[in-house]
Amino acid sequence: MADHPTLVKPPPVDPSKSAMENVLELTDLSPIGPDMFTNTRPLWHPPGARGIYGGAVIAHCLAAAQRTVPSNFTVHSMHCYFVLAGDSEIPVMYYVEHVREGRSFATRTVQARQRGKCIFTTTMSFARENSGGSRTITHAIPMPDDIPPPPADDEIEEIGKATWGRPFVSHQVEILNTQSENPHEKKTRQWIKAAGKISPEAGHEIHISALAYMSDSYFIGTISRIHGLWRHWSPDRKDKGEAKGSPSREPTKKERRAKVGMMVSLDHSIYFHQPRKFRADEWMFAEMSSPWSGDGRGVVTQHMYARDGTLIATCFQEGVVRLQQDEPSPKL
Rank of each mutant, 00 (worst) to 15 (best):
K277C: 05
G165R: 04
H171Q: 08
V75Q: 09
S30K: 13
H303A: 09
T6I: 02
Y213W: 01
P149Q: 06
S18C: 01
V299F: 15
E255V: 04
M288F: 08
T123Q: 13
L211M: 14
K244S: 12
F120G: 12
G86C: 02
E318C: 07
N182E: 05
H45F: 09
Q179A: 15
S248A: 12
V23W: 09
G165Y: 10
R135D: 07
R237Q: 10
A243W: 11
V173M: 08
G55V: 01
P167N: 07
L332S: 11
H273Y: 12
T68A: 10
A258F: 11
M284W: 08
D87L: 02
W283H: 09
T107P: 02
E89D: 15
A152N: 15
P167A: 10
W292Y: 10
T122R: 03
G132L: 01
S224K: 13
T68S: 14
D87K: 11
Y213V: 00
S329M: 13
T310C: 09
A2Y: 05
Q324S: 08
R50G: 13
A162Y: 14
G51N: 10
C61S: 15
P235M: 01
R231G: 08
S77Q: 10
L211S: 13
T310S: 15
G51L: 05
A65P: 06
S234C: 01
